[in-house]
């Protein structure tokens, strides 16, 4: 998410609220980090230090968690994250070809973000939509029964949405 400095202060205030809610709760670090990523777009070094200072959890632990789980990102993601499913059902029904088309159309590889900050491309594990294979998630929206030809239309839809 393209995050400007202007509202970053407010975002950290929001994070304060989350930390107050979870601080001291056993196993509260993951929920704090999940919220932090939602609010700030990523858990970069600054965010990790901030959580560490507020909770007393060593920053090394936080970094360890951030790099372990694939949902956490240390760099801001694009406004829309396109996650094409490479689970077995999607794979045997040709999701690799859809991914190839996405890479071609967006001009980026897996794990990269477009220069305008609009799209991040991910190859995800099974999203449980095997009945609609091959499937893709764009943020929380699911698209199913994809063929490479669907790709330009979907990209266009989000570009138009801005």
């Amino acid at each position: 998410m393209a995050v400007g400095n202007g509202n970053r202060k407010e975002q950290f205030e929001q994070l304060d609220g989350v930390i107050a809610q979870w601080k001291g709760v056993e196993g509260g670090l993951l929920p704090i980090m999940q919220h932090a990523q939602e609010i700030l777009g990523c858990v970069d070094e600054e965010v990790q230090h901030y959580i560490s200072a507020a909770t007393g959890i060593p920053v090394s632990t936080i970094y360890g968690v951030a790099t372990f789980y694939s949902q956490f990102t240390l760099k801001p993601r694009g406004k829309y994250t396109m996650g094409i499913c490479l689970g077995t059902a999607c794979y045997v029904r040709g999701s690799q070809q859809v991914l190839d088309e996405l890479e071609k159309r967006l001009g980026i590889g897996v794990g990269e973000t477009t220069a305008d900050g609009m799209f991040t491309l991910n190859a995800t594990r099974c999203i449980g939509c095997c009945g609609l294979a091959p499937a893709m998630m764009v943020n929380d929206e699911v698209y199913g029964r994809l063929v490479p030809g669907d790709v330009p239309g979907i990209i266009e839809k989000y570009r138009a949405r801005g």
């Binding site: 056993e26 196993g27 993951l30 999940q34 360890g64 968690v65 789980y69 694939s70």
Partner: peptide, 23 residues
Amino acid sequence: RLGSGAFVCGEETALMTSIEGCR
């Protein structure tokens, strides 16, 4: 508790470690 995208967390001891807020 929400998982954060690690397949190994389906393994029982890993899942518990994850609920505890760790890798």
